[in-house]
Design a protein around this nucleic acid. Structure first.
Length: 909
RNA sequence: GGACCCUUAGCUCAGUUGGCUAGAGCGUACGAUUCACAUUCGUGAGGUCACAAGUUCGAAUCUUGUAGGGUCCACCA
């Protein structure tokens, strides 16, 4: 026998994955690019397949994990979700394409590399941009590979040949093509705008990458003199006063009405700046007068634009004061603030200070306070893109799970500001723009588009241009992900685009999903995916966010090696629903591991039954069976084969109690899984499988089969369950499939099971048996005395169901014997199951059981009462649907009969 | 300030268009004992569905309000 007494995942998983990969079963069966109709020598198979493309292609692209990182729990969830979908659709016969990816993770990787440089005693400023790019490339290659191995250990059945790295040539090509199109369409502009700038990392961020934190600060009140009077302004950043180019007051503020248009003297300088009227000044806040520093504050920048104010930059990119009086020049912002406050105080300008709490922008990576910095950057005018996206969303072209996120997304797109796509880090896709440096060529444009970003300098009609040193925001290239992964092109649109579903974290709805939709529509005219499934955060077992500092991080790979890949997948899917942040604990993985082991032992039992049958059967039968098997195996694949497999697998009969029932239960289970998967209810699908396999198949069917041994049925039902569980627990199901003596090929490429035939009446009879068995067990447990003293025989009167199933009931209840009742009823009558059944219990025992019995009668009486009250309500009888009223009537009858039976139990004593 | 989500058993969560006695896993109590599986088997206990009002024959489910928790966006001179 091949089956060990327990399932050891580590002995099988690596080999199984390798076998799948070698066999090429992860690849889509329908070609990804349709063949050109005009070309010769077209493969027939491909053409035939092309006809049904729209129906049978099923594609998912993986959100690319960091190429040189390790997978975390979120990736574990992603793979569990996506791979279950892929495997389910593969079994359903779709041509599935699960496309893996690797992210160069521009900023993340850059931060890691910069730390590494620092450790080596170097800084980024020692190298040119191209040198740095080459160095990071090598650095990434050196670290690469872990993540891909980890995806394999999670069982991701993705098409490895099609792995896309975010810096691959086709990605860069596509990104440049889009950028060029946008440039020509006038959607790209270079603007001097305020950007969030990290003085430590020396790069700008998009709004979305900024982390706002509430902090304590001080609000200072400073006097700006206007001829005789003075105007008090409030500020949290006194050091920026050197960059002030106006003071704003609210136009409706009566206190300052007369001052509008006049000028004030800027303290510590010899400048006069105007007093302007602007809505931005809130009369309720501070003193109602606000200094305007267009170069260092986002709001002030906008005020400046409205009033055409000059922008004076007084803080440099590395956080030092510039363009300020000699005394302050070169100080850090902090030093300068101290000095300015000191000098203001000395000059009598400082009129007050208040402690306040305000939110401050931080770098999401290093926590440094971000400096709003005036910089020339490339921007995308998002108005049209967002508008188009909203139109398609409102047209319901993408289905969201959870549904509520659609509105959230539309709301976000409606308020989107222009997108800064320039980053000042070398690790990324170079922006394909070149700046004119030949001064005398006045007719030529200042900037030109050119793909030759490998060159620092290019020449065009005698004019020299130098490359912009910046790289793209990673989200700009990532927004092309569905397009580039599926190899979509204008000439050859692939049947795998749009994707069937985009599965990713709810936290990157804006950063990624929104941008993919805008970009997909802009490039292809179609939405990039038909559905979006968003998963929430995986929290620790107490509902806390996982973080290194809290020390509550769970490593998925550790769980995989401890309990097996399947256990992890089952565990993480359990109790999870779309878009919700949910807790996760090792317990659920243990439950998953137990299910795998249960299934393993179920298979072990069935295999041993099959082996025994084989040994006992006569030689000729064996020979005939073997020949049949070989004959069918010799044929080729295809629909004919599928039909034949169907016929063979349906060649069973249901002869014994419980057999029709299990067929019914398995059919229900399969149908439930199909519904659940269509609606992305993963946890429910797993739940259904768990209870069908364990509570129904093992606890009832297999127990009853210990008497009956219907080998063909045991085989086919096991196969059905193995296939049904395969999407969620791929390794154990394949391991079993390979160990079973009669199965062929890989389970991963089998067909989803067809319905089992059964007789519904016989199936229902088994429910009666179950009720009887449960009540016998329950009553025996409830009766006083030790277990051993309770070996009472069971007696029946004129009951053919019991009479026909004496052996079965005896086995399941473990009563010593079951006899026909001779003479008058005695002992304890079973009440719940409506059968003439008595436990042969001595009077004294029944007497002691009386209390429990009375309590039960009371409980049922309460239920009956509630039902009667319902029926006495004329409105209910009139208005509720007829079937419900009838149901209630039936229930009343049942309860009344039950109470009557229970009362006989008491009377019998 | 705006938006969205959540509150159901000790814990983590299901509960689909309102309709049987509100379910599962884990935990827990009692019992079994080696015949596929102790990663086992059997039987229980455990719930004012956050609170209040409303709609309805009927509400965990729909509406409104209150309280608590979470997430995101905007703003904070």
């Amino acid at each position: 026998m091949k089956f060990a007494s327990s399932y050891e995942p580590n002995e099988y998983e690596t080999d199984i994955y390798a076998a799948w990969e070698t066999a090429g079963v992860f690849k889509p069966t329908i070609p990804t690019i349709p063949v050109d109709n005009n070309s010769d020598g077209v493969d027939d198979r491909f053409e035939a397949a092309g006809a049904s493309n729209s129906r049978t292609c099923y594609s998912i692209v993986m959100p690319p994990p960091n190429a040189n990182g390790n997978l975390h729990i979120g990736h574990g969830l992603t793979v569990a979700l996506e791979d279950s979908l892929i495997r389910f659709h593969r079994l359903k016969g779709d041509s599935t394409w699960y496309i893996p990816g690797a992210d160069h993770a521009g900023f993340e990787t850059w931060v890691v590399y910069e730390k590494y440089l620092e450790k080596e005693g170097h800084t980024r400023f020692e190298y040119s941009r191209d040198e740095l790019y080459a160095r990071v490339w090598d650095f990434v290659q050196m670290q690469r590979g872990n993540m891909e191995l980890q995806l394999r250990s999670l069982g991701a059945s993705c098409s490895w040949d099609d792995l896309t790295f975010t810096l691959d040539e086709n990605v860069v090509d596509r990104v440049y093509t889009t950028f060029e199109k946008m440039w020509n369409d006038g959607l790209i502009y270079r603007g001097e705008k305020l950007v969030n700038f990290c003085p430590k990392h020396q790069t700008a961020f998009a709004d979305i990458e900024v982390e706002h934190k509430d902090e304590k600060g001080t609000l200072w009140e400073i006097a700006y003199e206007v001829s005789e009077v003075c105007l008090i302004v409030s500020t949290t950043r006194p050091e920026t006063l050197f960059g002030d180019t106006a003071v704003a007051v609210n136009p409706d503020d009566p206190r300052y009405k007369d001052l509008i248009g006049k000028t004030v003297h800027l303290p510590l300088t010899d400048r006069e700046i105007p007093i302007i009227a602007d809505e931005h000044a809130d009369p309720e806040y501070g003193t109602g007068a606000v200094k305007i520093t267009p170069a260092h504050d986002f709001d002030d920048f906008e005020v400046g634009e409205r009033h055409n104010l000059p922008r004076i930059q007084v803080i440099s990119e590395d956080g030092h004061m510039i363009n300020v009086p000699e005394k302050y020049n070169g100080l850090t912002t902090e030093e300068c603030r101290k000095q300015v406050l000191k000098d203001l105080k000395a000059g009598g300008f400082l009129k007050g200070e208040k402690k306040i709490v305000h939110s401050v922008a931080h770098c999401y990576k290093c926590g440094t306070v971000l400096e709003p910095m005036l910089k020339e950057q490339w921007f995308i005018d998002v108005e049209k893109l967002a508008g188009t996206a909203i139109k398609h969303l409102e047209n319901d072209e993408i289905k969201f799970h959870p549904e509520s996120k659609k509105r959230v997304l539309i709301n976000y797109l409606g308020n989107l500001k222009d997108w800064n796509i320039s980053r000042q880090i070398p690790w990324g896709i170079a922006i394909p723009m070149f700046r004119k440096v030949t001064a005398e060529a006045t007719d030529e444009p200042d900037w030109i588009f050119d793909r030759r970003t490998n060159l620092k300098e290019i020449e065009k009609s005698g004019v020299t241009y130098v490359r912009d040193e910046d790289t793209f925001d990673t989200w700009f290239s990532s927004s092309h992900w569905p397009i580039v992964c599926t190899d979509w092109s204008e000439e050859n649109p692939t049947p795998y685009y749009p994707l069937n579903v985009m599965e990713t974290g709810a936290d990157i709805l804006f950063a990624w999903v929104a941008r993919m939709i805008m970009m997909g529509l802009y490039v292809t005219g179609e939405v990039p995916f038909k559905e979006v499934y968003l998963h929430g955060l995986v929290l620790d077992e107490h509902g806390q966010k996982m973080s290194k500092s809290k020390g509550n991080v769970i490593n998925p790979i550790e769980l995989v090696s401890k309990y097996g890949s399947d256990a992890f997948r089952l565990g993480i899917l359990r109790g999870r629903s779309a878009g919700m942040n949910q807790a996760f604990s090792e317990n659920s993985v243990v439950a998953g591991r137990n299910l795998c082991n249960k299934l393993w032992n179920i298979s072990r039992l069935i295999q041993s039954t099959v082996d025994e049958e084989f040994e006992n059967s006569d030689f000729e039968t064996v020979l005939r069976q073997r020949e049949q098997g070989e004959r069918s195996a010799a044929r080729d694949d295809g629909p004919a084969r599928a039909r034949r497999e169907d016929a063979i697998s349906n060649s069973y009969t249901t002869d014994n109690m419980g057999e029709d029932w299990i067929c019914r239960e398995i059919n229900d289970c399969l149908a439930q899984i199909e519904t659940d998967m269509r609606e992305y209810r993963f946890a429910e699908a797993v739940e259904t499988l768990y209870s069908t396999i364990w509570d129904k198949y093992a606890d009832w069917f297999l127990e009853s089969q210990k008497i009956f041994r219907n080998v063909p049925l045991l085989k086919i039902t096991l196969e059905h369950l193995l296939i049904a569980l395969h999407p969620f627990a791929p390794f154990v199901t394949e391991a079993i499939w390979q160990n079973l003596s009669w199965t062929e090929g890989f389970i991963i490429t089998k067909n989803w099971p067809s319905e089992l035939k059964f007789d519904p009446i016989t199936a229902e009879q088994f429910e009666n048996i179950r009720t009887i068995v449960s009540e016998v067990r329950g009553t025996l447990t409830a009766l006083p005395g030790t277990f051993k003293s309770k070996n009472f025989p069971l007696m029946y009167d004129k009951d053919s169901l019991v009479e026909d199933n004496i052996l079965l009931i005896k086995t399941l209840t473990r009563v010593p014997e079951i006899n026909p009742l001779n003479g008058n009823p005695r002992g304890l009558r079973l009440a719940l199951a409506n059968h003439e059944l008595y436990l042969d219990v001595p009077e004294a025992t029944v007497e002691a059981y009386k209390g429990a019995l009375t309590a039960k009668i009371l409980a049922v009486g309460g239920e009956l009462n509630a039902l009667n009250i319902r029926m006495m309500n004329p409105n209910y009888v009139e208005r509720a649907p007829e079937h419900l009223v009838k149901e209630t009537r039936d229930q009343i009858k049942e309860k009344e009969a039950l109470i009557a039976r229970l009362k006989t139990q008491l009377e019998l004593i």
